[in-house]
Every structure is written in C-alpha cells, then in structure tokens.
C-alpha cells in the first residue's frame, strides 16, 4: 500500500484539496492524508467546505518536543520541521503501508505514478533535484541560490519502508527538532538543506532526474510543456508526473512565482494553460474562503525592548573590541 501526505495550515486547505483530487483521479489506489499544522476546533469553520480527505492534526502525532519547536520556530520553519515526524508516525503506526510519499500542497499530480513506484521498489529513498542542467544566465534564482537552500526540492520526497529509510527519518527528526531554521550564513534552510546529506549518509537514495517530476519555475528553463493527445508532456514526449506551483498567488495571477524572475507568462506561453487550470481548481475548492484563516501556531513577532539601554550597556566592551581588532 502507498500513502501520500501533504502538510499545511487551514489557510492552504484549497491547495491540499486540489492535490487530493488530482491523486484520486490518477492514483485512486493511494491513500491520502492532509497533515494539518493547525487546529480545527478553535475556528468557526463551515464544515460543508472541508475537503473529503483524512485530516491529521499535528498535535495528534506525538512529536516529543512539539512545545519547544513551536517556541523556537516561525510558521514556515514549523510547517517544514514536522515533515519527518509525520513520516516517523506513519512508519510506526501504519504497518500496512509500504511506500510513503510527501507532496507540498501546491502540487498537482498529472499521471499514474508508475515510474515513481517502480523506483521505490528498487530504492529506499527517492528525491528530485531542482534542476538537471545549468541556467547559463544571470537571473534569480541562481545556481548558488539553489546550493544555499538545497539541491533537492523538498516539495517532494518518497520512502519505502526499510531499515535505511527509518534510519534517515530518525536522523532527520533529530536535526529538525532544533535546526530547522532559515539561517543561510550558517548553512541552514528549513528541512530542505539537510536533504543534501541523504545520498551521502544513506544507501539506495535515488536522485530521480525524470523530467516529468516536480516541474516548476526552477527547472522550466530545461522543460517545455505541451498538451498532446489528452495529456501533458514535457519536451514533446515525456509524460508530466507532477507540477509544482511554488510561489504562485491567486491574488497575483500574472506572476509565475514570487521567488524568481526567470520565467514569465510572456516568455513561456506554454505554461499558461497549466496555471489557468490550477487557478480554476483552487477557486472551485474555496481558496477565497480558506485563505483568511489564521494559523493557531503563528506567534507574535518578538519586539526587542530597551534598545538604547542595550546599546549603552554594550558600549565599553564594544569600544575595547574594535580597538583590539585593529592590532
């Protein structure tokens, strides 16, 4: 049995709903669970709008130091930090499940994932790189931006139940308990950058370069999309597996993604229908309703008080330090 899960807060339920619908259509034999980094009963929710999929709230999966993590992390960090804990929960509580696949909620699956299940049968872990050929330009994001945040995009990762995968999940949980930060100068970028270690630390980690996987702004420079005989294909003949609408906002329908300036709808008319399709499905799945709910785990921004007192208290030592520095 294969289990697919995603992670989001209530404000992203339209996306998770859309992903679920695409899975149901293409892969009806997969079980689908929405991991909710949020609480349902604190909100006044119109139950009729809830997607018809299992919801598993994060406070139900026994994360050992969840309180500490809520305290340490901002909402982006927290949402990503719980990912390995869900894997761990499913490995331990669902012995009937062999393959576990994670997708970001802003993904649509376009095909029966036979290619992926075959690769999982032969490997322990499957990851997808952001790109498989150089950019050869000076646009944003650059090749070094990708290095800084992670070669493999963690909007997707899949594991097969195995000793090696459990080892990976345990180590990954351990790292993300305290070091799921965005702190680029110190090598940290949420859960994703840690994945750089996977092929080095663990056996049978497959770097899946199939061009139909995880198609998104970061690899559209090497992938042309077209609709041929009722299905989407990449570069003329490679079946599109899943498309990742990372950074796309319904409120800004003319922008491909808020994280880049390489790909636009003007220079890439081939992707326009893919985004129209997405926009329509999100609207059908009540995006405008869900987007306004505030996540229970958002914390107020820390305001530093007594700024002046701090400055003066530090002054003598700071003066000494700058003197010594020049020696």
């Amino acid at each position: 049995m294969t289990l697919v899960f995603t992670l989001c807060s209530v404000n992203y339920l339209a996306q998770a709903h859309t992903l679920g619908d695409s899975l149901r259509e293409q892969n009806p034999d997969f079980e689908y669970i929405i991991g909710l980094v949020d609480k349902l009963d604190t909100k006044d929710i119109d139950k009729s709008k809830l997607p018809d999929y299992q919801l598993l709230e994060v406070d139900k999966i026994n994360i050992p130091d969840f309180v500490g993590m809520c305290d340490r992390y901002d909402i982006t960090e927290l949402n990503t930090a719980v990912k390995p804990y869900y894997f761990d929960y499913f490995l331990k509580n669902r012995p009937d499940i062999t393959n576990i696949i994670y997708f970001d909620p802003d993904i649509i699956v376009f095909d029966k994932l036979k290619h992926l299940t075959k690769n999982l049968a032969e490997n322990n872990i499957v990851v997808t790189p952001h790109m498989t050929t150089p950019y050869n330009d000076t646009k944003w994001q650059s090749e070094e931006d990708i290095i800084n945040t992670g070669i493999y995009n963690f909007g997707f990762v899949a594991i097969k139940r195995s000793e090696e995968a459990q080892k990976m999940v345990t180590w990954w949980c351990d790292k993300l308990e305290k070091e799921c930060k965005i702190d680029l100068c110190n090598g940290l970028f949420v859960d994703q950058h840690w994945a750089e270690f996977f092929p080095v630390y663990f056996d049978k980690v497959f770097i899946d370069k199939h061009l139909g996987n995880n198609v998104a702004y970061w690899n559209l420079h090497e992938r042309v999309c077209s609709f041929v005989e009722n299905s989407w294909v990449i570069n003329g003949n490679i079946p599109l597996q899943f498309f990742h609408y990372s950074g796309y906002l319904i409120a800004k329908p003319n922008e491909v993604s808020k994280y880049q300036d390489r790909i636009s709808f003007e220079n890439r008319p081939d992707i326009i229908p893919l985004f129209e399709l997405y926009r329509n499905q999100l609207l059908t799945n009540n995006e405008l309703y869900w987007k306004n709910f505030k996540c229970d785990y958002i914390k107020p921004k820390k305001v530093q008080r007594l700024v002046r007192v701090r400055k003066y208290a530090k002054m003598p030592l700071e003066k000494l330090a700058s003197l010594i520095e020049k020696l």
Binding site: P129, H130, M131, E143, E144, I151
Partner: peptide
C-alpha cells in the same frame, strides 16, 4: 560548493 550540483547535473 559547486560540487553540490554535480550528482544532479
């Protein structure tokens, strides 16, 4: 650090 891309590229 460029070597990070090598297995993927």
């Amino acid at each position: 650090l460029w070597l990070e891309h090598v297995p993927a590229m």
